[in-house]
Design a protein around this nucleic acid. Structure first.
Length: 107
DNA sequence: GACCTGACGGTAC
DNA sequence: GGTACCGCCAGGT
């Protein structure tokens, strides 16, 4: 089933360590090999699994674009702050918390 | 089966 | 450094 792609997204998102955040671009790139960042968002939009830390997925700018899709718009930021994730001008400090699937074992 | 949309990214200006 | 336009993949209508 094509929706297997969704499962891949969830699987990768679940691998994001606590206190780290990833971007749609990196995830989509690791899955399709292209810039399918939108697909990641689309997959997370379905997120049938509450265990999926979709709050750890932000855009390239570090903005919590998916926040309004949560039960509460501030829930996303609250969860990240709870994981010691620092914010810069209302955005995630990508410089410190940026996590990439490919560098999960190297960096 | 075709067209449009979507939690975005990258490059160009 | 910020804004604007184009591009990519999959799903939904």
């Amino acid at each position: 089933m094509k929706q297997d792609f969704y499962q891949k997204v969830y699987n990768l998102v679940k691998k994001i360590p606590r206190g780290k955040v990833s971007t749609y671009g990196h995830i989509g790139r690791a899955l399709t090999g292209g810039n399918s960042a939108r697909l990641v968002g689309m997959a997370l939009n379905n997120c049938p699994d509450p265990q999926t830390p979709c709050h750890r997925v932000v855009n390239r700018n570090g903005e919590l674009t998916g926040a309004p899709h949560f039960d509460h718009p501030d829930m996303m930021r609250d969860l990240l702050e709870n994981e010691k994730v620092t914010f810069k001008d209302g955005r995630v400090d990508m410089k410190k918390h940026l996590w990439v699937p490919q560098s999960q074992v190297n960096y």
